[in-house]
Each structure stands twice: as C-alpha cells, then as structure tokens.
Design a protein around this nucleic acid. Structure first.
Length: 476
RNA sequence: CGGGGCGUGGCGCAGUCCGGCUAGCGCACCUGCUUUGGGAGCAGGGAGUCGAAAGUUCAAAUCUUUUCGCCCCGACCA
C-alpha cells in the first residue's frame, strides 16, 4: 500500500490532487494557477467535447471562433458584467515593444466581443436566430486555483445566441441546460439537480442563470454547467437592434451557456475511489485494457494469438481498447496503473485462460471478476460496458438520494451542513438573508429546483408559504 | 489578500536547529541475468551550480539579509 495514494477519508483534496497527477490527467505548469492537460486527460475532454458538440449540432447550433483579445472598454459596457469580471481579468498593456494606447483584456468570457460582432450581423428579424457556439480557452485570474476545478486558463465551450423574442431565448436557455443535464447523466453518469440561480449567485449581466449541480464524493456540490437568459442586457449595451415584422426596431434577446474542463474534476470526484479514477465507459479514453500474462515464449505466443483474435472483434465492435504488452513491468503493476487511470474493464489473458479458451474480466467500478469463454466475452462486452455505465449512474443516484435531506428549519440546515449533502427546502427569503446564511453556515442556495417534490411549502428560514423549492449545500 | 508549508539528481525526501572532510536515501532511469495471475529480485552504472543574489567565515545546503517561485487552507469564482 506504500505505493498507493492518500485515501479519500484521510484527506479528500490531497486524494484529488494525487489522482489527477498519477492518472496523468494533468500536471502543474511553470505558470502559477495554470495546468498542462496531458494526453490522457485531453482524450477525456475530447470525448466529452465530441458528444456535446453532436448535441449542439443536432439542435441547430454552429461553431465559430472569436479572438482572445478583447478591447478593454468592451467589458465596461454592461454594468453588472464589468463589476463581476473586473477583478479577475488579465490585461495586455504592452506589445510590439511599447505600451499600448488602448489596452486589451484576455477574454474571461466572450459576450462582449460577440455582441459587438452581432451588431454588425443583425438587421432584420430574418437574421435571427443566431445560434453560435465556440470551443475556446479563457483566462480568469482567480485568487486560488485547483487542478481542473479552477485554473487561471481553462478550456470550455460558450454558446451565444440571439433571438427575436424573449420566449424563444428563454426556451433556448432551458434547452441548453437540459442538454447539459443529458451530458452529465447519460454520458458522465453524474446525476444533477437542475434549477435557477438566485439573484446572489447568477451570472453578471444575466436576467436568469440556470445551472446543473452535482454532488461530489465528499458531499459538497459542484456547479457543473450554466445557461443564462440574458434578456436584452447585452443587446442594449452593444446597441443591437433588429427590425421586426411590424417594421419596428427592437433590441435582440440573448442567451449564453457553457461547460468547461471543470467537468473532468467533477468526474474524478463523483466516481473516484481510493484506487484512483473510475471512468464512465461512454467517455473513457480506453474502455478495455488487455493485459497478457506469460512466463515463456510458448506461453507468449499462445497468449498473444488469442489476444489478436479478440482485438479484431473489439475493433469491429468499435470498442476503444488498449493492449498493454509492455514487458518492462509486471502484470500486477499494470493492474494498479490501469485502475488508477479508471479503465472500465480489464481483460487478463494468461496460459490458463488460453487452455480453456477464456479470459478473465474485472470491472473497475465494482472490482467484480468473471471468467467467461472468449465467445461469451466478445458477445457480452458491449452489454457489459452499457451495464457499467448504467450501474455507475444508478450508484450515484442512490448516493445523492441518501444525501439529500428535506428540511423545515434553520437548525436542520445547520445539521445538514455539518454532515454534508444537500438540504432541500422551500425558500421565501431575500438576498440579505441568503448572505447571512452563507456567512453563518458557509452553505449557499445552489439553485431553485425545476423539478419540485411538491407544489409549495413553508420557508425554512422565514416561515412564509412559498412555491420556490431550493437545494442548499456547501460548494466548490 | 490573510494563514500554513515547501524549494537539495527526473520525482519524493533526509541533512539545516548545533557550519567541517567524497551532499545521502527511496523511487524512476541505463546494462545484464533471473522473473511475470496484484506494484519482481540480484549485480553493476549514469545523473545534483542544494531556487536566486549578496554577506559573515579558514570553511556555507546549513548562519544573516534580500529576493523569486510553487503548493495547501480561507474570502472570490466555471
């Protein structure tokens, strides 16, 4: 065990940092707060990206690219926006060997430059809607950083849409948060609560912010994706009007939405255990790892022959697999390494297996061993991966259920905060009360639930009858 | 920005309090042989301006001053 990692119960955040590095997802860069995403981590991001991008395209969105440098004054055009982002913006003051007349900021988000461009592109209602997404990097100068969860530079996608009506924009914002929910649950096996942010927690410049909230292994919440209904705020700031069907000038309605490489942090903390990562099959860079075991050349030939047969079929079935035929390390070493990296299924092929025309399979999520024949294995592998995907989500659903507590008083909230998890309650308080609760308990209202357990109830804080049900917890 | 920790072969550390002779240890790496079903063993080998600068001293990884950087915990945030 001396070669293992710090256990979750011992020090959760140390565990997290070690998993990220030992699974070779990312490493620290020489620049404070920045990280290098290593090939294995990037492969994970690519799989997330691919699936999400398909969903974007299926809902009529197109990709584009806007520049990273934004004129500094752009950020100042929307009052809340500048107030929200000013402290964390990096500014380019010098270039070409001299001080610049006008400074540029490195984008912390792209609303401003995009709306500057939208003004040029939008004249009539016939130009709407515009449904653009971009995959990009952004820079936010955070005080404290943490691999994947909060880094100075991070990768994300940001969708920016323009609409002729508020209704249409609202539908868009809700459609997109639902796509994030699908991504989280169907691909990342990570159940999320979906809802609306309170005034205190919403995006600077938004009318409404919707979010998906996931529960990490240490029972803290992680905001894992957001979608904003921006109303006409940015259109007004950038004077983007269109001529409607009645020949009247009207400001455009907008949305923006994004998820980032933070999702990788979410996956690690949702599924990981003391042996390392556990990756959902749908997005795992390798779904199967084959480990050949042999003592001599005879065994080696037998084993590799069988392995080749198996590889051919796996290829046909479009399963992402890797044959780990390194001879410099022992099988035991490989077991540990691939467990650290979270590969869903390990296949062992040794002389004993060849003799009975079988393989040994081990599930990463449950550790369960099985000894199918080669034919059974090849026939079942797709099902097995689906089962793992399903079981992982199911396990997390149970975990969330066990850690969601309906409460009716402030004292009960404090108890929930102490043990971790979500408190679910009705809420009729205001912004100041929310601040006070945050001060006193460190917990925040994560969101006002879209899917309530009942129509209305008494506010846990004010005692007033309310139709707003919220979840509250400590968050990353 | 407040609190804490740390800079010594590629990585992790010891040595620093109380200055001293060739700067050690583990892992990793290279070569060879034996191994291989849960992190292999033995033998041999390569690799270090001790974060940087200045000072004290016969002598500095160690003492003094300055400085740079990173990590962790808090307030802020995806």
């Amino acid at each position: 065990m001396s070669k293992g990692i710090t256990s979750q119960s011992q020090d959760y955040s140390k565990w997290y940092t070690e998993v990220v590095q030992k699974a070779e997802l990312a490493d620290y860069s020489p620049v404070k707060g920045c990280m290098v995403i290593r090939p294995y981590g990037y492969a994970l991001w690519e799989n997330i990206k691919l699936n999400l991008d398909n969903m974007f395209k299926d809902t009529g969105h197109e990709n584009a690219y806007f520049p990273m440098l934004i004129p500094e004054e752009f950020l100042k055009k929307e009052a809340e926006h500048v107030e929200g982002f000013a402290p964390e913006v990096a500014v380019v003051t010098h270039a070409g060997g001299k001080k610049l007349e006008n400074f540029y900021v490195l984008r912390p988000t792209s609303e401003t430059i995009i709306w500057y461009m939208y003004k040029k592109w939008i004249n009539s209602h016939r130009d709407l809607p515009i449904l653009i997404n971009q995959w990009a990097n952004v820079i936010r100068w955070e005080m404290r950083t943490r691999l994947f969860l909060r880094t100075t530079e991070f990768l994300w996608q940001e969708g920016h849409t323009a609409h002729a009506t508020a209704e249409e924009a609202l539908i868009e914002a809700k459609t997109m948060i639902n796509i994030y929910k699908i991504l989280a649950e169907d691909y990342l096996a990570m159940p999320v609560y979906i809802g609306k942010k309170t005034e205190n927690e919403k995006f600077p410049g938004a009318v409404d912010t919707y979010s998906i909230e996931a529960l990490m292994g240490d029972k803290k919440a992680l905001q894992s994706g957001t979608s904003h209904y921006l109303g006409q705020n940015f259109a007004k700031a950038f004077d983007v009007k269109f001529q409607n069907e009645n020949n009247k000038q009207e400001f455009v309605y907008a949305t923006s939405w994004g998820v980032s490489t933070r999702l990788i942090g979410a996956i690690i903390m949702t599924h990981g255990d003391d042996k390392g990562l556990i990756l959902p099959p749908k997005i795992a860079p390798q779904q199967v790892v084959i480990i050949p075991i042999y003592r001599n050349d005879d065994d080696k030939n037998k084993v590799l022959n069988l392995s080749k047969k198996i590889e051919t079929t796996l290829k046909e079935k479009k399963i992402r697999f890797k044959l780990d035929n390194r001879e410099s390390v022992t099988p035991g070493y490989k077991f540990n390494e691939w467990e650290m990296k979270g590969v869903p299924v390990r296949v062992e092929i040794g002389p004993k297996d060849v003799d009975r025309n079988g393989v040994v399979t081990v599930r990463r999520d449950t550790g369960k061993k099985a000894f199918p024949s080669v034919e059974e294995f090849l026939e079942d592998i797709t099902n097995l991966l689906d089962t793992i995907q399903f079981d992982m989500l199911d396990k997390q659903r149970k975990f969330r259920k066990e850690n969601t507590f309906d409460i009716e008083s402030y004292d009960e909230l404090k108890e929930v905060v102490k043990k971790g998890g979500y408190a679910r309650a009705f809420w009729a308080g205001n912004s100041e009360m929310e601040d006070k609760i945050k001060d006193e308990t460190k917990a925040t209202i994560r969101c006002e639930l879209f899917e309530k357990t009942k129509e209305s109830g008494k506010c846990f804080y004010t005692g007033k009858e309310s139709k707003v049900q919220v979840i509250i917890s400590k968050a990353y």
